[in-house]
Design a protein around this nucleic acid. Structure first.
Lengths: 124, 124
DNA sequence: ACTATAGTCAAGTACATGCTTGACCATTTG
DNA sequence: CAAATGGTCAAGCATGTACTTGACTATAGT
């Protein structure tokens, strides 16, 4: 249930590489084989396979092997969920600004009264 | 112009860490000092400062030092832009599915007619 | 002035990532 | 069947990341 955490790690990490994003960009236009993904990249096939594994274990891409060919395609739900994570944060921030009258005090809100408090908050 | 690429690397990498995401979650509720961000985390202050630097150089967070206190806050534009990158890909994918009649051939689309073609696509 | 607070800097360390090479296996295709 | 194609596996290596510790600086409170 709470490797929800790890999933976000994997998804964002998968996205944090220009080569992998380029593969994703190819994949939004439709499924492609590993070799097709490799074609525009200056990298060995082996390297591309590793990137595909990263994308797959992040859940952003699913793959299926037929004969000797592995076909990759986007998992839209994963994409949507990741987008949503960002959207949630953004809207929380924006709601807060609205509540405050758009531009006013940007003072750091004190966490409690004074001294060093060390509670353990739940991970997010 | 095209370190646009590097910016996305930095943003997604910044997001690919549970600790940093937790800081972001704190920050959407309003600006906070480094110590306030550190409080719920089991990490030295020095480590937190390094995370803040990662967040700042990704552009997701801006900071300002007043006296001895550094105050951090969300940069909503950066958040929005990152969200938008995902949204663009998702909608491209969805438009494609619509065009195809929602569930039909998921065959890998041949890049052109037959044999090994090696064009150079633009980076993304 | 004296002490605590808030943060900074510079090493150093352990582990993760991105890539390569080279051997290898499984399917096509001539 | 033989050769080409598409992909896989396992090292190995260079760099990057996520910390830690310990020394140090700049402000604030008493």
């Amino acid at each position: 249930m709470l490797d929800h955490l790890a999933v976000l790690d994997l998804r964002f990490r998968a996205l944090a590489d220009a080569g992998r994003r380029q593969m994703l960009d190819r994949l939004v236009d439709g499924p492609a084989t590993v070799s097709q993904l490799a074609a525009p990249l200056r990298m060995t096939l082996a390297a591309v396979v590793q990137h595909v594994q990263v994308l797959e274990s992040s859940g952003l891409v699913r793959t299926r092997k037929t004969g000797r060919v592995r076909t990759c395609s986007i998992d839209a739900d994963a994409l949507r969920a990741t987008e949503q994570w960002l959207a949630d944060r953004r809207t929380t921030w924006e709601r807060r600004l609205d509540r405050l009258g758009t531009v006013l005090d940007e003072q750091p809100r004190p966490t409690s009264t004074t001294r060093h408090d060390r509670e353990q908050g739940p991970l997010t």
